[in-house]
Design a protein around this nucleic acid. Structure first.
Lengths: 219, 219
DNA sequence: GTCTATAGAATGATAGAC
DNA sequence: GTCTATCATTCTATAGAC
């Protein structure tokens, strides 16, 4: 196949290698900037500088600031909800919840910017994601809440409001990403430190599991 | 006393009534705008419109955008840490922690914007508050952590990392303010709804207290 | 104290050369 | 695809009339 044809085909359908690379560089840079300053506080200049390219060049790939924001939000969305989907209704409650908490805490350690990106969107009233929150997120929460409710009905978990339990888990784990600066000010280190991660994991799981596993019947 | 003298004295020392009122209107408006869009995302225009005055008039009271931000942050700071200081080392652990959780949850209900204002500051790396976090906040956390550690040593609480326990309580309670939009998307209502507040309080306290009160020795 | 007008800088976005 | 130059707009902040 001749090069002309190849490159035309790639440009129209697949994307050239350099395009894919640059788009990724831009989205990485955008994640960094948007997660710190929010949509309105971020500037295209800043994202371009972070991506190591000129502003007009960046705008060749994404015509408007909005488009960059939308792209980085959607790119992150699936990854973000993945561990929640992996909670197995047929598994045992203790194992499933332990694995989920650990996965969420690992997300806070490995992808704190993604956590803050969503937080920023939610803080602004979710102008872009409100539809997704009210449908997809709501559905998946209700689905998992039903699983928890079943576990409770079967006497495998102590009676707790399932939806608020989910909120609690999200709150405790995402806190280590969203409040990283504050945690570092108090502890001197963040979750990226293995010791802090371990203590956070043990403390959250220790309290949570003691709190929700069924009390042994008094003999 | 003649009016001229009175107003000069008030202007130089105490502030006139209209000044005090306008400054308060501005700070209330600034809280609303900064807590939603962060420092960089907020505009003076927006704050002025929210305060119901012209931009130049607002800038007569606070010469720079920075000054408004500093003023609203410091105005909120004391109020925000108050309930933490009220945890009594000589009280009983269950009662003290229960009261603290309820107070923090009430703060999330009654002052969600203050919660998000601090969160925004922390998300940006706390450019203004980092010194306060590393000194005042760190000190007060360590002080309360020592109280919790004493309770644990006395066998009145199960062994838990005291600092991470504090993080957990902050996370679970502030979540209802910081993620209000998301919670409303899922539940249809926020913490401002009495039923949601009650369930949140019961769930958090139920899990937390079962998790940290000392296990009864098996007879 | 409040307003209109505007200076001066930053920002989102485009045009056109290469 | 990338660059320089630039436009239009928005933004912070000030000047000066009332």
């Amino acid at each position: 196949m001749d090069d002309q044809l190849m490159s035309r085909a790639a440009a129209s359908k697949k994307r050239t290698r350099i395009q894919a690379e640059n788009e990724e560089k831009i989205l990485d840079a955008a994640l960094e900037v948007f997660s710190t300053f929010g949509f309105r506080g971020a500037t295209v200049d800043q994202i371009a500088a972070q991506a190591g390219m000129s502003k007009p060049n960046l705008l060749y790939y994404f015509r408007r600031k909005q488009d960059i924001y939308t792209a980085v939000l959607t790119r992150t969305l699936d990854m973000w909800l993945t561990p929640f989907g992996e909670m197995d209704p047929d598994g045992d409650p203790e194992g499933e919840i332990t694995a989920y908490v650990r996965a969420k805490l690992a997300q806070s350690r490995d992808h704190p910017q993604e956590s803050r990106l969503f937080l920023g969107e939610v803080m602004q009233g979710a102008p872009l994601l409100s539809a997704v929150l009210a449908t997809d997120l709501r559905d998946i929460v209700e689905e998992k809440a039903a699983v928890i409710a079943r576990w409770i009905a079967d006497g495998r978990l102590a009676p707790v409001d399932p939806v608020h339990l989910v909120f609690m888990i999200w709150a405790m784990t995402q806190h280590y990403a969203d409040f990283d600066t504050q945690i570092r000010a108090v502890l001197g280190k963040g979750v990226s430190d293995p010791a802090v991660f371990a203590t956070a994991n043990d403390t959250v799981l220790g309290v949570l599991m003691t709190g929700i596993l069924p009390r042994r019947p008094v003999p």
